[in-house]
């Protein structure tokens, strides 16, 4: 059975022409997805002038990269460093709360019985489908009334409410964990908490990683919530900070030409720097993520 499962579930594309068409389509999409990224990586190694006059896919120089780097981190006396630190605090703080709160909740919704279970399940789905920005302004007013606006908690707490993560764990626990296994553990004398921590949680490691991944990426990239909650530049996460950089780029905002202005390659560098942590997580977790996505089919 397992010897077969790798290859034979794949559908054969027969025929030379069908394969070429399929190959061309896939290759075109590779170009579509990759060209902007390759260009971006090259753009940061150029001066503002050579970015415009040289071939888009030529490499610049190390010295230009260093110069861009210095210009970026000198912007508003090192504001970029502050923003990145803020992003880390917000994203990681919310991630920890999300996991601690969400994974047990998904487990309970899938495999235990309690009053209001179905109501909470429906509520989870409904809130998951609500455009989160529809709640941003009301949450703003709610937190405003208890004086949390501008505090890190005003973004961490709302971000740590992650019904999508609960839904994912719920689906996983209810479809991929055999109930008989849990029943056997109970017969063997496990308490309910041990059933969760020793049996279900280890089996769910791939989905926990998946939730952690989605949560971190979403938190790091969140724009609207911090945009509304944090009035002061000191509290910006880097995503919101990018708007300050954009506003200081004469190429896109002619009125900003001045001493603290930002050149195009520097703005490109800011774009890369702003996503570096997420990029690392992507590169680092690729194998793990795919394993998580397909775990249900391979655990036998």
């Amino acid at each position: 059975m397992s010897a077969l499962s790798g290859e034979s579930s794949r559908v054969n594309l027969r025929g030379w022409s069908a394969r070429s068409v399929a190959g061309i389509v896939m290759a075109l999409f590779v170009l579509f997805f990759v060209i902007p990224i390759v260009w971006l990586l090259l753009a940061v190694t150029k001066s503002a002038k050579s970015l415009i006059v040289s071939n888009p896919f030529s490499a610049g120089s190390w010295s230009d990269l260093v110069a861009n780097w210095h210009q970026l981190f000198a912007f508003q006396d090192g504001a970029v460093t502050t923003w990145i630190g803020n992003s880390a605090v917000y994203a990681l703080g919310a991630l920890v709360i999300t996991l601690v709160v969400g994974v047990p909740a998904g487990y309970a919704l899938a495999l235990t019985e309690f009053k209001g279970r179905r109501a909470l399940l429906v509520l989870t789905l409904v809130v998951m489908l609500i455009p989160s920005t529809a709640l941003v302004l009301p949450i703003f007013l709610e937190l405003n009334s208890i004086g949390l606006i501008g505090s890190p908690l005003s973004v961490i707490l709302p971000m740590s409410f992650f019904p999508f993560g609960v839904y994912l764990t719920y689906i996983y626990f209810s479809t991929s964990i055999p109930r008989d296994l849990l029943a056997a553990a109970r017969i063997d004398g496990c308490t309910e908490f041990q059933v969760f921590s020793r049996i279900a949680l280890p089996l769910a490691a791939p989905i926990v990683a998946l939730v952690a991944f989605f949560s971190f990426v979403q938190n790091w990239n969140n724009f609207f919530l911090p945009f509304v909650m944090l009035p002061s530049s000191d509290g910006y996460p880097v995503q919101v900070g990018l708007t300050s950089l954009l506003a200081a780029t004469p190429a896109f905002n002619p009125s900003s030409a001045g001493s603290d202005s930002v050149q195009l390659p520097t703005l490109a560098l800011a774009t890369i720097v702003s996503i570096l942590p997420v990029l690392f997580v992507f590169l680092f977790s690729q194998r793990f993520l795919v394993a998580g996505m397909t775990a249900g089919g391979t655990k036998e």
């Binding site: 047990p104 309970a108 709640l135 949450i139 409410f161 309910e192």
Partner: peptide
């Protein structure tokens, strides 16, 4: 697992967050 109220313990915090940042704002 219906015999024990463990479900309540597991969902309590999540239910709280759901109220605070889902239901009440809506």
């Amino acid at each position: 697992a219906g015999r024990t109220p463990i479900g309540y313990v597991f969902v309590a915090l999540y239910a709280l967050l759901t109220l605070a940042f889902g239901v009440v704002p809506a």
